[in-house]
């Protein structure tokens, strides 16, 4: 979190509380992209994400006055967003997700790697692959169940610290670390399979 963003947030909160006419414009300018994307990554559906974003902004505007300021403004807002989205998911039939277990590394009884391991780390350094890999990472992330997806998006995509993510989701830091690690192991395996198949094809 940069000092600059912090200051921007403070000023924004202040003007929301005072009801300054530009406050809402500023709120939308700074956050509608982030909130919409966060909602998209949880709900995976544009019209649901749009409605969730409406709810989030109305809640933020209504409650700016009672916001206690013992957490950062943006993390308060992310928390409202996550809660709003999870509430929406609750009533719905679950989206199709993959089982993360199928992508965890496999070991022998002695704890050694059970399958041969390709080193494709040099391969992905080629710039030509950049865009394609970015798309694949997004696709694989979308297939994760929301339990992992939300943690992964907040930490690795939004760049929040484990402590911040823990606070937003109401989980402990060790729980965040463990989910994050499993999500990364999953992603590594998905990329491995993708690159292997690419080569074979």
């Amino acid at each position: 979190m940069s000092a600059e963003r912090w200051k921007e947030d403070e000023a924004l909160l202040e003007s929301l509380r005072k009801g300054t006419p530009d406050a809402v414009d500023e709120l939308l300018r700074l956050y509608q992209g982030k909130i919409f994307n966060l909602a998209m990554s949880i709900l995976k559906n544009e019209s649901d994400a749009e409605e969730a974003a409406q709810d989030v902004f109305m809640t933020v505007i209504r409650k700016a006055d009672t916001f206690q300021g013992n957490s950062a403004f943006y993390s308060w807002m992310y928390r409202i967003c996550v809660n709003t989205c999870l509430m929406r998911l609750r009533g719905k039939r679950r989206n199709e997700t993959v089982s993360i277990e199928e992508f965890m590394p496999v070991f022998t009884d002695e704890g050694m790697h059970a399958s041969p391991m390709d080193d494709w780390s040099k391969e992905v350094e080629r710039d030509a692959l950049n865009e394609e890999l970015g798309q694949m990472i997004r696709k694989f992330t979308e297939e994760l169940s929301e339990k992992y997806r939300v943690v992964f998006v907040l930490s690795d995509v939004e760049g929040l610290s484990n402590e911040e993510t823990a606070k937003i989701l109401g989980l402990t830091v060790p729980a965040i670390k463990s989910r994050l690690h499993r999500a990364r192991l999953y992603l590594r395996e998905q990329l491995s399979r993708y690159l292997r198949e690419g080569k074979a094809g």
């Binding site: 994307n37 391991m117 950049n130 995509v157 990364r184 990329l191």
Partner: peptide
Amino acid sequence: AFTKTFRATCAETRKLRETIEYTI
């Protein structure tokens, strides 16, 4: 190989973070 590809995975995700546009 596992460690190198794990690192590469994290690096690719970071790159995504830097280039991600909050497209709406």
